[in-house]
Every structure is written in C-alpha cells, then in structure tokens.
C-alpha cells in the first residue's frame, strides 16, 4: 500500500518536473522576406536538431590534442594525404597532395569532358571524384583527409564521390575563404 502510494507520488512528481515542448511557430512574415533569406543553418530541414545536443552525444567528432597522432592503417593522421576540393559555381577542381602539400594528381570537371555549364553540376563533380579516387587507389593511397573550399553545387557530391570511388575519408575540413574586413567586392549583379 505504502509502496503503491510512493510510486504514484513519484509519477506525479515526474510529470510535474517534465518539461513540455512546443513546436516553433510558423511566423507570418509580412515584411519583404524575399530580399533577406532566413538564418542559414547550412542544411534544409535541420533546424529542429540542436547542435549542442549533437556535440554532447557524440565523442571524437572534432580534432583534439591527440588526433594528429591517431593511426590509420599505421599512418598517423598528420601524414595522411590530402584531397583539396575547390568548388565554385562553374567548376570543381580536385587536387590530391601528400601531407606536405606536394601535388600528386589534379582533375577537374572540365578535364573530365564536361564543358561549359555542365562543369558546374553535381553530377560532373561526382564523376570527377570517382575518377580521381580510382587513380589515387592505383597509386596506393587508401585513406585521405578532405579539404573543401568554396560553396557550389558540387560540394556534397564531390566528397560523396570520393567515397564511392573507394577511398576511405578520415575527416572533412572546410577551408572556404571568408573575411570580415574584405577589400571591396565586385559590384552586385543586376537582375
């Protein structure tokens, strides 16, 4: 009897303490919202997931003091070869270098046979990535770090293509050039 009372009390306390959630409202924007896009979260439809919870839940996602010396197939992380990907609106260029930055291989969507606007598509980036991956495997490279620069249609598919080509991607780094006090940029496009 007493224990039953206690459990019921505990349940009620639990329900009291339990925080309730409400979905974020779809605000009605009367202002000219076309001119200024909403806060960029990087990914569409990912706004509900809180970044902090992801960081707490998973360990070893970000580089630490020891990460330079972690071995991958007997090679420390800092000595792994690097695949630099330069993504722009009109083209995607892959450069495979060793850890010191000596260039081993270069492929771009234009070299792969895509011409003009087709160079800037994600399909072009993917096929180029697969071809450079097979070439890299021929040279005995298995594990790579990826460093991506720039935003463009081929950004995600380039990294995916490298994996599809059979390379083991250890880490993904962003190296987009962003300045907070840049020289005056070119004039805006008139649409």
């Amino acid at each position: 009897m007493l224990s039953a009372l206690r459990t019921s009390f505990r349940i009620s306390v639990n329900s009291l303490v339990r925080s309730f959630q409400t979905t974020t409202p779809a605000t009605i924007d009367r202002l000219d919202h076309k001119r200024i896009p909403a806060d960029d979260e990087g990914v569409q439809g990912e706004k509900i997931i809180d970044l902090d919870s992801v960081l707490k839940a998973k360990q070893g996602l970000f580089p630490t003091l020891e990460s330079d010396n972690i071995l991958y197939d007997g090679v420390p992380y800092k000595d792994l070869s690097i695949c630099n990907i330069r993504v722009s609106h009109n083209n995607t260029v892959f450069t495979l270098t060793d850890h010191a930055g000596t260039v081993k291989l270069i492929r771009s969507c234009g070299m792969e046979g895509f011409k003009n606007t087709k160079k800037g598509t994600n399909i072009a980036a993917q096929t180029t990535a697969i071809s450079i991956a097979t070439k890299a495997i021929d040279r005995g490279i298995k594990n790579i770090r990826v460093r991506v620069r720039g935003l463009g249609p081929g950004r995600l598919s380039a990294v995916k293509g490298l994996q599809m080509g059979g390379l083991q991607i250890i880490s993904v780094t962003d190296n987009t050039r962003v300045s907070w006090n840049p020289p005056r940029p070119r004039k805006a496009r008139r649409l």
């Binding site: 979260e41 880490s171 962003d174």
Partner: peptide
Amino acid sequence: SFIARTVFVKNNNVEDACRLINRVLGK
C-alpha cells in the same frame, strides 16, 4: 589547417559529417 572547421567521419558516414560541418558553418 585541420584544426578548425574539421569533422571526423564516423562509421564511414560522409553525408552526416558534411551535414554537421555545414551546420557548424551556418551557426
């Protein structure tokens, strides 16, 4: 390089790593 804006790929899941790094950049 490879200190800031870097995400390790876990369980061969490249897409998740890319998504995470994009989210970090956005935030």
